[in-house]
Simulated assay, not measured.
Amino acid sequence: MRLPEPGGDRPTEPRPSAKKGLRQDFDARARAARADFEAQLKQRKAELGARNEALTARTGRNLPAAIGIALAFAVVMLAALLIWKPAFMVVAAFLLGVGVYELASAMRFAGRDVPRIPSVAVSVAVVPAAFLGGQVAALFTLLGGIVFISLWRLVEVAVARDKPPVGHVVRDLTNGLFVQAYISLLGACVVLLSAQLRGQLWVIAFILVVVAVDTGAYATGLNLGKHPMAPRISPKKTWEGFAGSVAASIVVGIVVVVLLLGLPWWTGVLLGVLISGSATLGDLTESMIKRDLGIKDISSFLPGHGGLLDRIDSILPSAAVAYVMYLIVVH
């Protein structure tokens, strides 16, 4: 019998040309899989973008951006209020200062010369005056600031080579007064409330109710809205959305006053009803301002999302409501 030659039973190795063919086939499959994955990713991104654009066109806002910005502000405000309350002065001064600058700039764009530097300085000065000195200090700071802003504008007119008409000067002065009354005065109510005993909890509570108003109006109006509330001012705001905002604000109001403030449940109903009205009024007020100035957004401070004032318009009048309610309920 003839024995097999050494190595005769070993499998034969593929030839170099076969190895090259296998490698090329593997590379081709990998490239195809990668291209297919990239195509699916692009298609999914395009679909999400189209949905977001349709939602933005329908609601008038970029929802993902709105949620992201709201969460960022919530984290900063909660940290300031709960960790070290005086730090809230920095947050409030930033919000009011930027809001005043945005509105004054929008008015100047519309031909109404509201001095920006003194306007911002007054709004920032009101914050420590309210937090450290209370109502009287805040009121005198605001009144003195209005006089300062008016004198600033009159000096500008006096030294100007081309004198504007008297009617325009009066309009500039009244607009400067409105900026302070709308932003600095209402914003001071938030600061005054935060400075009270357990006031930081009241600030968190009423802001949560404002968020509920906005969310309830958004969800209900988007799905059920048919009857416009104020078509000339805000065409996308409906009575169905307002009803949803009231319902949501009452539910959240009861939850926050019972769990956070330790008050009877009926105060939550009252807080929810009042805040739903003030938040809606604040939203409509800013819409009226923008329509009067002929602009879509107050500014472009938040890229692709409008101005900062567009995000706090519902909070400003609601702060006055919450502060007055605090004084009545607590004192």
Results as ranks from 00 to 15, higher is better:
175 N>I: 00
89 M>D: 12
40 Q>N: 15
191 V>F: 08
298 I>L: 15
168 H>C: 13
256 V>D: 01
265 W>Y: 05
302 L>K: 03
205 A>Y: 07
133 G>L: 08
94 F>D: 01
107 M>L: 08
226 K>P: 02
70 A>C: 11
139 L>Q: 11
207 I>Y: 12
197 L>I: 08
222 L>G: 08
294 G>I: 03
54 A>R: 00
48 L>S: 03
85 K>M: 11
318 S>K: 04
313 D>Y: 05
166 V>W: 09
298 I>K: 09
265 W>A: 14
55 L>T: 07
168 H>D: 03
26 F>R: 05
312 I>N: 03
120 V>E: 13
233 I>R: 05
198 R>T: 04
319 A>L: 07
164 P>T: 00
214 D>M: 09
46 A>K: 11
285 T>A: 15
211 V>H: 06
134 G>N: 13
313 D>G: 15
78 L>N: 14
51 R>F: 00
149 I>M: 10
199 G>S: 15
303 P>V: 05
12 T>G: 13
141 T>Q: 10
183 I>G: 09
293 L>M: 01
213 V>D: 09
280 T>K: 09
79 A>S: 15
111 G>V: 03
216 G>I: 06
248 A>C: 15
2 R>P: 09
218 Y>Q: 03
279 A>L: 02
6 P>N: 14
47 E>M: 04
27 D>T: 04
42 K>H: 06
50 A>F: 01
165 P>T: 01
194 S>D: 04
138 A>H: 05
254 I>D: 06
102 E>G: 12
285 T>Y: 12
229 M>L: 12
272 G>Q: 03
80 A>I: 10
128 P>W: 03
87 A>S: 15
227 H>M: 15
11 P>K: 11
72 A>N: 12
137 A>Q: 10
313 D>Q: 09
325 M>Q: 10
62 N>K: 10
42 K>E: 08
227 H>V: 00
50 A>G: 04
193 L>N: 01
158 A>Q: 10
